[in-house]
Design a protein around this nucleic acid. Structure first.
Length: 263
DNA sequence: ATAATATGGTGAT
DNA sequence: TCACCCTATTATC
């Protein structure tokens, strides 16, 4: 279950383990039968992450994968296990393989479809070719809530429901504040924090927003509860105020009414 | 055994 | 704003 950090980590891992190799591709579940036949035996050139989307560049085709809420990759070494559950896609390399279960999207895209996809995605905090100013322009002109804007992939691509609540809590910004009430310095702080938190998430392959001094230690024993400030918490860690939760953009958002004043 | 839940997104209304 | 899609895991009975 992925936000942008997971996707970028997967792109790096799959690049390292599979790019440059001629790969066997199949669809044990059968729902990607046609596509997998076109990819089978082809060489994977590279893997690219944009927001929560993965693009696998093969010799003649580009595979688009979006995990959605349920999609999962499983990594295997030889000998390969039997497919577990509904395996949409199995890719087999020289020494490693992966299975893909339950993705929202697993499809071959044309060049123009790729362009359309990229055009509808906003600034990606984990890419170097990104333009935070485009996000600032959209946010500063919007009367939508910042909690909604952070989930809008055409504004910032890669932030999901956990990071949304964590970022706004750390900045002391109430999720219901309208985008156009943010100052430019508030936005800059938001962007910088988002970049740094997603980088940490990518490096450790998990969302960590607390204990920044513990993060550098390789074998930190933080459990999930200790890695987050506010997501699904009953009370504010800093002030003890009961955490409020409600829906914005069809997802539950969490905020401390004391640390994140409405105005 | 069955229900509820989940870090996401689309398309209709 | 809502219904719906996709699947696995966890919670509840």
């Amino acid at each position: 279950m992925p936000e942008g950090h997971t996707i970028h980590r997967l792109a790096d891992d799959h690049n390292r383990d599979f790019s440059g190799q001629q790969l066997l591709v199949c669809s044990p579940q059968g729902r990607f039968e046609d596509g997998s036949k076109k990819l089978n035996g082809q060489t994977l050139r590279s893997v690219e992450a944009i927001g929560k989307h993965l693009l696998y560049r093969w010799e003649k085709h580009t595979l688009h994968v979006h995990l959605g809420l349920y999609g999962k990759f499983r990594r295997h070494s030889m000998p390969l296990p039997e497919p577990r559950g509904q395996v949409r896609l199995r890719v087999i390399g020289e020494t490693l393989a992966f299975d893909l279960n339950g993705p929202t999207a697993c499809e071959l895209l044309t060049a123009s479809e790729i362009k359309t996809l990229k055009n509808r995605l906003g600034a990606d905090p984990l890419r170097t070719d990104t333009d935070p100013d485009s996000a600032w322009r959209k946010i500063s002109r919007s009367r939508s809530s910042i909690g909604g804007l952070l989930m809008d992939q055409s504004v910032i691509a890669g932030v999901g429901n956990i990071y949304r609540s964590e970022i706004l809590y750390l900045l002391g910004i109430h999720p219901s504040r309208q985008g156009n009430t943010l100052s430019e310095s508030e936005f800059m702080a938001l962007w910088e924090l988002t970049v740094s938190l997603l980088k940490i998430g990518k490096r450790y392959n998990r969302i960590i927003t607390t204990h920044p001094d513990e993060i550098g230690k390789p074998r930190t024993r933080m459990n999930r509860d200790e890695r987050l400030w506010i997501y699904k918490k009953p009370a504010c860690i800093r002030c003890g105020t009961p955490i409020q939760s409600w829906k914005i953009a069809a997802r539950t958002v969490y905020a401390c009414p004391t640390c994140q004043p409405q105005t």
